[in-house]
Amino acid sequence: MDLRAPLQLQAMIKSMTDVVLPALDPANQMAQEQAQLILGMMHLMAVRLPMEYHYDIDQLKRYLALAGELQETVTGGPLTNAALETLVQSSLSGTDCLTRPQVSPGDLEAAVLDLRTQISGLVEALWQDGEADCRAVAGKAVLAAAKEQILRERAWFVPQGWDADTSAIPAIETLIDFPTPPGQTGA
């Protein structure tokens, strides 16, 4: 099967650029704007699609690390304990995902979303009946983990052009251990 996403995207970008965009009515502002965005979205897909699997593996590893840190440090009342138990189950499922051979991209994404939800649930419970000291520790752990996640998101969306100066944002490949072919740098 040789018709894969990279070729499809390349062909669509060329068609949009060479044929569709020049043919649009310049007075139709909405069509002009959306055509440009479609082109931008296809460029983003072209550079990021090959990395999505690596991105999710990296993301899952970091959410598992945060979940582990919280499980070790958090104590509290019935709500906190119930949230902890649920998080333990999600962590086991997430770890299984990482170690299972040939895990599907869909399973990886589902594990990430589940951990996001259960960690959030623990934070919410902690603020209801958790130990006050634990809140501070958990808060710092969540902020530190968020910082890493945000850095990756900033790097991921660099091609969208939200930042005038991207010199302080590392290439996404270096953050998610994506193998870069020799002589190439990340977008």
Binding site: E33, I38, L143, A146, I150, E153, W162
Partner: peptide, 26 residues
């Protein structure tokens, strides 16, 4: 919406706001 492609595009800017949120919460 009448401009789903623009609305979806805007998801990319959310990390600029979460970055500021993270800083001010710290």
């Amino acid at each position: 919406t009448h401009q789903d492609v623009l609305v979806a595009w805007c998801i990319g800017v959310s990390s600029k706001f979460t970055e500021q949120l993270n800083e001010v919460l710290e």
